[in-house]
Each structure stands twice: as C-alpha cells, then as structure tokens.
C-alpha cells in the first residue's frame, strides 16, 4: 500500500508507531485472527475497561477485515466510539445512532468516485445505537438495500453513559433507569435484520475468535455484491453488570451457545463461489 509509505529520507522522523505500521501493519497482506501477536495491529492501546469483552470483539473485528487497506469505518457514540481515533484506518464518528445513514452516503460516494475499486464500508455501533435510537436509519438502510456490513457490539446495556437498560437488555435485569427490572424482553433485532432485507445475519461472541473472523469476513464479502449484512457480537458489559472479566467472558459464551448464521440463497451462492474458488 503505497500511500502509507513515507517519502525516502523521512522514515526516521515519523513516530515509532507509524514506522511499525508501515513495516509490519496488516495492509495488503492476508492476515487474520490466527496471526494476532505476529503483526502490528490496526488498534493497539485503548482507554476502555480492563477485561472488556466489547473491546476484545472490536480487536477481533479489526483483525478479521478482508481488505483493511480499503476499509472505511463508521462508528458512533458508545464505549467503542472512544477508540475510534486510534484506529489506523479512515474512521469517522456519526451522531449517536446515525451510523447507517452516514454509511449510506459514504458508500454511494465511494461508488461514484471509485466505480472500479471495492471500498468496504462498515458500521460499528452498540446495541443502543442500532436497536434503540438508531432503529430507523438502520432498518431503512436495509430496506433500501444499501451494500455495507453493520456490526452490533451487544453488551446488553448503555455502558458509555453509566449502565442504563437498553432495548437489548433482557427482561427483568435491574440496571439504571430500570430500578424494578427491565419491563420487556430483548428486542428481537436479529429477526428484524432478516425481515428488513439483510442478505447475511449472524451472531458470534468474542469467546470464539475464529467464528468471529469467519462471520465478519462473510458479512463484508456478501455486502460487496449481494446486499446489506448484519452481525451481532454478544459481549456483555463486565463493569455495568458487575461481573469480573472472567465471568463476563463466560456469560458472553453462554449467550451464543449455538452457531447462529442466516443467509439468503443469493448470499449462499455467492459465498460458495468465493469459498469454492479459494
């Protein structure tokens, strides 16, 4: 990837971190989750809670991108939103819950400017940003058939604002603003995604890194050609559910006991043509 290479003679004045990205970053190489620890990652430090499952999901997601050098990331407010300026890709933060509206405009701009080149736009948001405040722009981007992948980091609450119940919090859970226990069940957002026209819908948890990788890749590949895609990454919030990191990890695993993967016939054929060819 030539654009990241400094002009000759300038290498040593750049920050060490940048030099490492040039020498050993993932751009233009087919690296994945199995290679973690052997290359310079797109994200390194983060300011989030120690032992956070959401952060682990974020890290795995970035390590699974099929073509990082042409990936554009749209995030929004939420715990993960605080990491976004530290990603070594072009990343932008949309107003809370509007990530899929932003990505609709951005995807269209990429197709106008680079008709011959695939740019992978992806959105990353919380359960609150997709299922509550951002329900309309999310589902409408799917109704319109906007071709990009959406990734929900479902920590089952509004974590960034201090642990309030979200629409994706299970019924009965006591969190801020649900002092008597949440009064209705988890929004069936995965089902909504299927109904709204996603060509590929999956749920994974960071406790199974290789599965996360496979689902992230499939979602991005299907979005290139077939239609919108959605992946829910179950990663319960340790801090606000008052769990130790180990307990939170275990709980995230329980939340995704079986592989949950749906795809349309067109998506299946497309993936088979790719995976068969590989």
């Amino acid at each position: 990837m030539d654009v990241i290479k400094p002009a000759p003679g300038f290498e040593d004045i750049l920050p060490l971190e940048y030099q490492e990205l040039v020498a050993d970053g993932p751009y233009g190489r087919s690296l994945g989750v199995k290679d973690l620890g052997t290359f310079k990652e797109l994200i390194e430090d983060h300011p989030l809670c120690a032992g956070c499952n959401l952060t682990l999901s974020f890290r795995l997601l970035l390590a699974s991108l099929p073509k990082p050098e042409d990936t554009l990331i749209v995030t929004t407010a939420g715990c993960f939103g605080v990491i976004h300026p530290q990603i070594a890709l072009h990343a932008s933060i949309a107003p809370f819950g509007t990530q899929n509206a932003f990505a609709s405009g951005l995807t269209r701009a990429m197709r106008i400017r680079f008709p011959e080149k695939q740019k992978d736009v992806i959105t990353i948001g919380g359960d609150g940003s997709f299922a509550d405040i951002g329900m309309a722009p999310t589902t409408h981007s799917w109704f319109r058939g906007e071709k990009f992948a959406s990734f929900m980091l479902d920590n089952e609450c509004y974590a960034n604002t201090g642990g309030q119940a979200s629409g994706m919090t299970p019924e009965g859970v006591v969190l801020n603003m649900a002092p008597k226990g949440k009064s209705f069940d988890k929004i069936p957002f995965v089902e909504i995604a299927k109904l709204a026209g996603c060509a590929y819908v999956a749920t994974a948890s960071p406790t199974k890194p290789r599965q996360v990788e496979s689902m992230v890749r499939r979602a991005i590949l299907v979005a290139r050609e077939v239609g919108p895609t959605f992946v829910r990454l179950a990663c319960v919030c340790a801090t606000n559910y008052k769990l130790t990191p180990i307990e939170a990890h275990r709980k995230s695993k329980e939340l995704v006991s079986q592989t949950d993967e749906y795809m349309t016939e067109a998506a299946r054929e497309y993936l088979e043509s790719l995976e068969g060819a590989a």
């Binding site: 509206a101 932003f102 609709s104 405009g105 701009a109 409408h140």
Partner: peptide
C-alpha cells in the same frame, strides 16, 4: 446528477449528506 434518494427523515438525510461529503463528493 450521479446519485439521489429520498431519505427516511431529515436527521438521517443530513447525516447521509455528511457521509457522502466526507467521502469527497
């Protein structure tokens, strides 16, 4: 003009406009 759509409401129209302009069109 090269692309056009009726958005879902004005907030998301203006965010989509922002996404496209951020992408350089």
């Amino acid at each position: 003009i090269r692309d056009y759509y009726r958005g879902e409401d004005e907030l998301h129209v203006m965010v989509s406009a922002m996404g496209a302009a951020t992408g350089g069109v």
